[in-house]
Every structure is written in C-alpha cells, then in structure tokens.
Amino acid sequence: MTSFKKYFTYHFKSTLLRGAVMAVLALALTVTSVYPDTVRSDTEVYIRSDISFLGILAAILCTVIPILELSGFKNRRNLDTLFFLPVTRQKMAVAHYINGLIHITVISAICFVTAALRLIGYAEHLNLLAMFPFFGYTIFACIVMYSVFMFVFTQANTVADGAVFMAIYAIAGFCIVTAIGEITSITFIEGSAENYFVYSPISVFTSEYNGYITPTIKYFYYDPDVQNIAIVSPQSLGFNDYEAVSFVFWGIAGIASVLGYLFTFSRQKAEKAGGISDSPFGYKVLIPLCGLCIYISIGTADIMNIMYLIAMAIGYIIYRRSFKLKIPDLVVLGAFLAFILCGFIF
C-alpha cells in the first residue's frame, strides 16, 4: 500500500464517525423538510413539494466540511505531529480534499434518495426522474463551492480567520462584479452580479429544478375576485445567459481553487499556524478590495465614507490583532483621509 493510501485510509476511518453523525443530522432534516404537500381545490387535488432544502444542505456541507477537514492544520502543536509523517504534504492535501468530497457526495446522495423515497408515492404528480440530473448538477456545484472554500481556508493561519475569509469570499465576487458594472455600465455585467456569490451555482440549480421536478404542481393563491384557487402555469427548465456565463466562470474558479489549494497546502509554513493570516489572498487584499468595491457600488454620501473608514479600520485591527498603527497603516490612513478631504473640497 502506498503512503497516500495508508494516510487516506487512516484519515477516512478516523472521520467516519463525524461523517455518520452529519449524515444522520442531514437525514433527519431532509425527512422533516421534504414532504408531499396536498392542496385541494373545489374540483382537483394537487401534490407539491419544496426540495430546495437539498440545495441548502449542499451549501451547508460545502461550508462546514472544509473547516472540519483543515482546522487541524491551523494548530501548531498538531502540525508537529503531522508534518513529519512519511507522507508528502501534497498527498496529505489530496487525502483531505478527497475525504471531504466523499463526505459531501455520500451525505448528499443519502438525502437525495431519502427525499425521492418520501415523494415516490406521488410519482404520477412529480417529475422524480429529474432528481438524477439535479443530483449531478448539485455535485458539480458542490465541487466548485467546496474547492473554493478549501483554497480560501488554506489561506488563513487560524480557524477563525479561515471562517472570516470564507464569509468575505462568499460575497467578494458579487462586490467586484457590481463595482465593475457600476464603472462600465455594461448591462450584461450589471445584470449578472448576483450569479457571483459563491453559493449562486447551487442556488440557481436548486431554484430551477425545484420548479422542474414538480411540473404538475401549480402555484396557488386565493384570488379575491373569484374566491377560489387560481393555478399558475408550471415552470420549465432553463438557464439564462447570465447564469450560463457564471457557470463557466465557476468551473474555471473551481479548477483554479484546487490548484491553488494544493500549491498553498504543500508550501504552508507550520510555524505560522495560529499566527496572523498574512496571505496575499487574505485580509490585506480583501479588506481594501471589498471596501473599494462596496464604495464604488453604493457609497456616495459623506457619512458612508466615514463608515467605510471605520469598517476597514476594524478589519485591519482584526487582521493585525493589535490597535497599534504601523507606518504602512498610517500611510494608507493618510491617503484615505486625503481622498475624503478632496471629496469635500471638490
């Protein structure tokens, strides 16, 4: 057995209980969240079901599992017992990546099967076969989200910073695209910003398939004029151009994230674990970049300038874990104040 197989087998076995607990929790939530809902009108009986929980679950798994897989590498004492093992860091990184992906796939599959079994008695009303492509697309979206979060979490030196990075990266794409749209005024870019949230691939697939899997189920509302149930036409499956372009973007982002994750993991400095997260993909770029993008997108009022300044200062205090201002901080602060002053004068 190769060293990779040995390490992977050990890691897989040691995380089996964790995976089982998560699967049981996910299963319980699926059973309570996905159920056939009978709606009766005067003349007909309709069956509907909301399967969007499966998408939400996939998003939760893709957020939580990177933290669980990699948090051990943010502890210096733990690295002392891991990084001398006869397994290269690259193999270790791959083992953790694959293990997390197996957990996501298996737990998602269990929940999809459970959801399908909950609804199978009403197969004549539902397009249950579409659960298969929905599962396939969900896994694609999961791989993208999971890869991005694995890369992002590896940039941090502490678990808390990793979680903050994940939160910032979740909105960073949206902020940047919105700012670009604001500057260029290109309609396509302006209209597509919402597809660049990290969770957008899964939310797009889920909302499309939720309408597609239940085609005979109409949306009901009480029309006050007729005092009866009105029926809205069923949805059809279709992704718009904004979504199609964003899928290509997320596909490339997923591949780049995997490569970035492997590169960063195999070169990470054990001595930095638990220290300040000074990665170029971390606070020192994210804080000014996101601050600037938000400023371009919505902030024009004077009070907003002050709020940005305070928010970015808080961000830098979190980053440096200190209230002490260094020379680069003073330079940036001075430039920012000068920028605001110019705004007041001109």
């Binding site: 502890n75 004492r77 002392d80 017992t81 397994v87």
Partner: peptide, 13 residues
C-alpha cells in the same frame, strides 16, 4: 527518508 525519522515534540497534540 521520513520513514526513518520520528520526531517527538515537547508538547505533542
């Protein structure tokens, strides 16, 4: 090479 090395730190995790 590492198969031949074992490191015991002062405060193992």
């Amino acid at each position: 090479t590492r198969e031949n090395i074992f490191f015991l730190p002062d405060d193992p995790y």
